[in-house]
Design a protein around this nucleic acid. Structure first.
Lengths: 301, 301
DNA sequence: TCACCAACTTCAATTCTTCTGAAATTGGTA
DNA sequence: TACCAATTTCAGAAGAATTGAAGTTGGTGA
């Protein structure tokens, strides 16, 4: 059986024009090279050089030089692609994430992640938590970042950070004058606008308040516009409304248990691609630190 | 260093879905296959299968399956091309030959030669002996077939057959009535038309006759037309005018030494390509036999 | 939940391949 | 004709791959 290694030796000899130099180039003795060449000629079925001074090729030798070079080039390239992929320097990464993370967390993370991986292709979807889970489960996204857990079905949840809920109201609202964290009881007379995120708050007091609410808005921009217009208050995770909005105030809640967990959503039982694995490790290390800095808190909890 | 053989094993396992069947397929034990796979994973830098039951590939495994298959296919194809070339089943063959051989000898020879080599490309040039030698010497033709030898310069001559000179005259010429081989002296009063081939006849008597000749014609068709028109006689190698021409008679010469040697012309010091070598051997074996039959003579001399 | 079974992996011994260094051969050159 | 450097040959050494047996592992059915 002809080996690629034998072709490598032959090409080196053909290029050197003699065995001695070729032997040095491949790190073997001249006798090893000579034997390899002989074996190659036997297996191919004809002489490769015109004389035993290896300075001129036969027609067969020329053909083998061309084909051999091409094979070596192509093989080495394939191997380097395989290695690059294994080491997550190439490939594609599809990330599904909730908008607040996409807007406030991912930009610097992705930038740093891709700095050392200029060949990696990234797709980013921002959608709600339920759809993040669905995209990961179906394999459309390699990895997701979403709030909440209840790790069910085919996905697994790994917490990255916790995001406290805060109260959003007009700057001229009475509550702004309290100058202390807001108790649920402070909200008893207020008009609450429900949203997709606030429904996850477990506190009984909030559930009661929420039940009386007549408006539910899922889009954050619309939600803030309604608050600004004076239609009511709303409760959102801190990261969601990161960055001040003119005319609205952000107030802390006294109930510090009112928070959502944000974390990685991954498919269970299906190993991640090398890039996805690398991104996972990077995210677990970098996102908590970044969020702690952004929100001015201890990381996680 | 990653070996193509390891990729072969991997592809087989990936296609079988388990090690045992793959081991049977490649003719090794399961443990050998397992070790090869492990080594491959180490060298590539990542796992290829999702579990140690080898029925589902990782993303890396899928990539390697694609690239590996392609490499194997391409390598095997290259090797088969090299072998086919070495065994003269493919390649191209450029033959330069004098017209009489091209017309009377080569057709059946080439047909039989190519019967078992349907992929071989042939180029055929018919030119005069001097140009045959020039084309071979310059490498434009791989092999030549020409009369005469005087093997000089960079070419070598190997005789294939000898071709007796014969006399060509009008059917109504006086010489036709002799009913015996023609002596040089029979031609003393005749008008001789010289041609490229007849100049090589060594006999003194012919040289004298030839010196008196006023017309020289190199093209055989024109030559015969002139003879037919009654402008004179001419002396040509038997093969050149093989096949009767209406209105002209072909007469034997008594001087049996008047003949030309026809043989292979090859470049000296440059080994022939495998196809050229194969054609050489075929020609040396088949052409003398064919000519003997055609001209009704013993082969060579 | 446990025990079994088949697939896979590990390990040490063996076999096969390739490599080395010395000696012989070859082909070109003074 | 004799020399010299390159190449080839050869036998032993080193290295790589393979084997068979023993040990793990993970899935399956009682």
């Amino acid at each position: 059986m002809i080996k690629l290694e034998a072709l490598r030796v032959f090409v080196t000899v053909a290029e050197s024009g003699n065995i001695k130099d070729a032997a040095d180039a491949v790190g073997r003795t001249a006798s090893a090279v000579s034997m390899t060449l002989k074996q190659l000629e036997d297996e191919i079925g004809g002489p490769l050089f015109q004389t035993d001074r290896k300075n001129s090729l036969t027609a067969l030798g020329n053909l083998m030089l061309d084909l051999g070079r091409e094979q070596i080039r192509s093989f080495d390239k394939s191997v380097s692609i395989m290695r690059a992929f294994a080491h997550s320097r190439i490939g594609s990464l599809s990330i599904a994430t909730v908008p607040s993370v996409a807007a406030n967390v991912l930009p610097p993370i992705l930038q740093r992640f891709l700095e050392t991986r200029p060949q990696v292709q990234v797709e980013l979807f921002d959608i709600d938590s339920a759809q993040v889970r669905r995209m990961v489960e179906s394999g459309v996204a390699d990895i997701g970042i979403a709030g909440d857990s209840r790790a069910g079905g085919g996905v697994e949840f790994s917490s990255l950070f916790s995001d406290r809920f805060q109260l959003l109201c007009r700057e001229d609202h009475d509550l702004c004058r309290l100058e202390r964290p807001i108790e649920w009881s402070d909200l008893s007379g207020a008009t609450l606008i429900r949203n997709g995120a606030s429904d996850r708050i477990e506190a009984e007091e909030h559930k009661r308040l929420s039940a009386q609410s007549l408006i539910t808005v899922y889009n954050v921009t619309s939600l803030i516009a309604l608050v600004k217009a004076g239609l009511g208050l709303t409760i959102l995770p801190s990261l969601t409304m990161h960055g001040a909005h003119d005319g609205v105030a952000v107030l802390e809640l006294a109930d510090t248990s009112a928070s959502r967990q944000v974390g990685l959503v991954e498919r269970r039982d299906v190993p991640p691609s090398p890039i996805a694995a690398a991104f996972r490790a990077f995210a677990l290390r970098e996102i908590p630190a970044l969020v702690a800095e952004r929100l001015g808190r201890r990381k996680d909890q």
